[in-house]
Nucleic acid binder design. Structure first.
Lengths: 145, 145
DNA sequence: ATAATACAATTAGAAACCTAATTATTAGAT
DNA sequence: ATCTAATAATTAGGTTTCTAATTGTATTAT
């Protein structure tokens, strides 16, 4: 089991997550918030559904996490007249500052995780993980019909 | 962000998990239970702390998940006289049956995930993920001191 | 134009997970 | 031998996550 793909992916992902949280303890961010902050850096103004998909969590989950982030003043949610059933999410200045810290931490951990890897190896790894991603996406989509 | 290691690991892990849960819906297992069942197949009689470490969850979490599994009759927990502060966990016959189903599903998904991969590619992937694992373990251990 | 359908977000309720503090047991030090 | 440290499990309290059902808004069909 220790050598199975599932186990390795789980271990790597969770160690990454644990390391991230340790590195941003001083920010007061709770575990669900960093990935959303990170997504918004590159997709400011996204609607909730989009964020949920990108972060691989359900729309119902996003609702509560974003509420917490809004209360902390990290984001604001706007209702545009052109589409009143969607909520558009924007980083505040405070949110941007914390997001930068998260970004930095992401980069640090990634570097640590890949220490000893050559550029060619990094590229191969990325390609492999992307292929798996596509294989799995197809599988899950198929099951939903 | 879509191309970062963290994102790819997260996506692959969560798609794997989602696919697994879809494939064992009929078993009535809740999301936290399959990985423990799987671990016990190869480590029957493990103590709770060991299971927690292997499954990358905290001892406090194991307590409640194992309670649920015990109530469902999937496991029993025994107190041995030689060490009365540890609890030794064993699969019941019912637990073994469900574990087999979980195993089968793990294998199916792994095959789907790696479709198109040659044996040499699979081996390289495993090596890479294991190296990342070791890099991260070192990092997390270091932070704890 | 109105009715049916689809869609985005939310609420409700439950499971999984965490950290910090507690209890019970074991091991180690003097 | 007793006192202190460490260890395994648990409890308490909170966050994240899920599914299913609901609300409000937009689209589509007749």
């Amino acid at each position: 089991m220790k050598e199975s793909l599932h186990y390795l992916l789980m271990a790597d992902h969770l160690l990454f997550q644990k390391s991230l949280l340790a590195g941003i303890k001083d920010t007061g961010l709770t575990p669900g918030q960093p990935k959303i902050l990170d997504y918004l850096v590159f997709h400011d103004g996204a609607v909730q559904k989009e964020i949920a998909e990108a972060c691989h969590i359900e729309p119902a989950t996003i609702t509560s996490v974003l509420l917490g982030m809004e209360n902390k003043g990290l984001i604001i949610r706007k209702n545009l007249n052109s589409n009143r059933r969607s909520l558009y999410v924007y980083l505040t200045d405070k949110g941007k500052l914390l997001a930068e810290q998260v970004e930095m931490q992401f980069r640090d951990i990634e570097e640590k995780a890949l220490s000893g890897f050559g550029d060619d190896e990094k590229e191969i790894l990325t390609i492999f993980l992307t292929r798996i991603n596509q294989n799995m996406k197809g599988a899950v989509d198929h099951e939903q019909n």
